[in-house]
Design a protein around this nucleic acid. Structure first.
Lengths: 188, 188, 188, 188
DNA sequence: AATGAATGAGGGTTCATTCAT
DNA sequence: CATGAATGAACCCTCATTCAT
């Protein structure tokens, strides 16, 4: 991941990886069979890492759907997830998704699970309140796409981009659509 | 762009490009000096193309800030912008942004202009209504990041992804934050 | 010649030559048929130029063999012949002589003529004096090789190399072997 | 060196070198990093080889300055140094000296050391005799340039050129300028 | 007579992969 | 298990040469 973050996927050579790991070049192929497979395992590990944090965030909080939803949003905009070095790796893989079906499959799986959980939480929130004009699908779509989009800003203009402003925007949005569940924070 | 869409940036060779263009390999370097420069020109052209459509969308509509804002959102979710083949190229470049400062500069410029216009439109909408609890910044952040995020979904799960559902989500969001300017549509 | 002097023979491209001449690339081949032929014509021209100066030097002076010989030596160490830019071209061709028989033939012709004239002059000098222990061949060999060798010094260490010191060495040599014909100059 | 001798510097390809060495093409760059560096190492090796022979020649002989000087001259006109194949490599590099500062530096170093030693030997000879009209500088200049020039003859007209005639000329010259140290040989 | 866009072979170089040790 | 020298295919790029204009 360090290498991909530094030089991109196309610019990463097995020699780089071996050097970074302090190992010989041969051992990389011995363990991963091929460069392609190394990348796939990297992506899998990246996905698994994210999923673990995701599960952790779900456990945290007061247990209410709104709390868990907020917890997930905070994760997506946390320092851990938003580091440009890590995001660069995600975008590197997304950039190859079109031409590598295997990458797409893994990314798709993460996305699907993410969407599913968000959708479920939104549904629970709507069920436990009175929101006649809102569908869970609409809110879930907005939330899921927002975080992805915010990451792009983080990647492209890292210095100017403020995680707090983003979190503020998310909270503002939630308090607008779900006023009964999310308290209005003072606008910054 | 065809080649990048098919094979990614790393997988695109000058031989591919030349074959696709029905020309000899030498002529590519004669006109573009280097592969790197060819990619930069490609990105510039992509950015210019988007900008042209962007300006076009700004002119369309009834001229009101709300109309223009909606027009931009419709553009971002239009068939023209959302074709996976085109998005693949954008993501291919975003995937390299971290390791190629030149790519970042071009992408950043597009983003900056986009954000600026959206922010201005939101500010005008807020000025022409009564929205004491909303800041233009918050709404602009949500909108800008949403479209980027929706493109990722379009890229990763193209078959399932519905542009209309996304547009619906955007409209739902706008009618929630700006009820005086955006009529509530029937939920899908 | 300018191009060869700057970049060497291997580094000279037809595009360089055309640019230097302020002409199009096509016209070079139209006139010279091929790059190889252009180089051959260049070498021929270089040889002819030298030969013209050589003949000129032979006419100059008082007409005596000793005077003509000295005149030739002065030519070889003159500013016109010793300019590094020109010498570089000669050495560039000599560097290719082994692998290009045509180059060798031209260089050989120049050399042969040079040796022949020098030898003849030395013979005349010996005949018109009393030098029982000297053969014309020996002196001619020394003189001919000296000038070639002095050029190499001029090429390799141009800044430190003094044409006057070289000329001094030549004169010193001649006054030693042919004391009746060359006056001893004050040693520098 | 074999390849350079056969095809010149510009005509030598890495494929040639690899084939000559019985190795793959990749390994050449693995060891030498670049073609340019391969040539530099070649020139260095050539220079070192010559220097080793030079030192060897200095040790040989009776130890007197005159003996050592003659020994060096004999080296320069020896079969080992004068083989056209080797000279071709030297001239190939000299032909590029103008456009390759690195080549010049290496050649210059060899030359400088050579000149210095010859000059010193001449000075010692003059000191140990009575030569009021000769300067060490003059003789050193003649000797140093002669050998270089004789090499050119050897390269250009190898078949006709006789090392013995050249050595004879050198000896004749030395016996003329330093009659007390060099015995007059019978003229050929 | 002259142009310069276009060709395509061949160059140097990189790098995933193999394999003797 | 591990190494790293070696391979060779494929890359980008250069450039002599051609040819329609």
């Amino acid at each position: 991941m360090k290498c991909i973050g530094r030089r991109g996927i196309g610019g990463t050579t097995l020699a780089d990886v071996a050097r970074e790991a302090g190992l010989s070049q041969g051992i990389v192929n011995l363990h991963f069979q091929s460069k392609e497979n190394l990348f796939i395992e990297t992506l899998k590990s990246l996905a698994e890492d994210y999923r673990a944090q995701f599960e952790g965030a779900l456990q945290r909080g007061d247990g209410s759907p709104a709390g868990r939803l907020m917890s997930l949003m905070e994760l997506d905009l946390s320092h851990s997830v938003c580091q440009p070095a890590k995001l660069a790796v995600w975008f590197a893989f997304w950039g190859e998704v079109k031409s590598r079906p295997t990458y797409r499959k893994i990314c798709d799986e993460v996305d699907r699970y993410y969407d599913e959980v968000i959708l479920q939480l939104c549904a629970e929130i709507i069920d436990s309140g009175y929101y006649p004009q809102i569908t869970a699908m609409n809110v879930a779509t907005v939330l899921a796409s927002m975080t992805n989009g915010l990451w792009l800003s983080c990647l492209i203009s890292p210095q100017e981009w403020s995680r707090h402003a983003a979190l503020d925007a998310v909270h503002c949005y939630l308090s607008t659509v779900f006023p009964q569940h999310f308290r209005r924070s003072g606008a910054t």
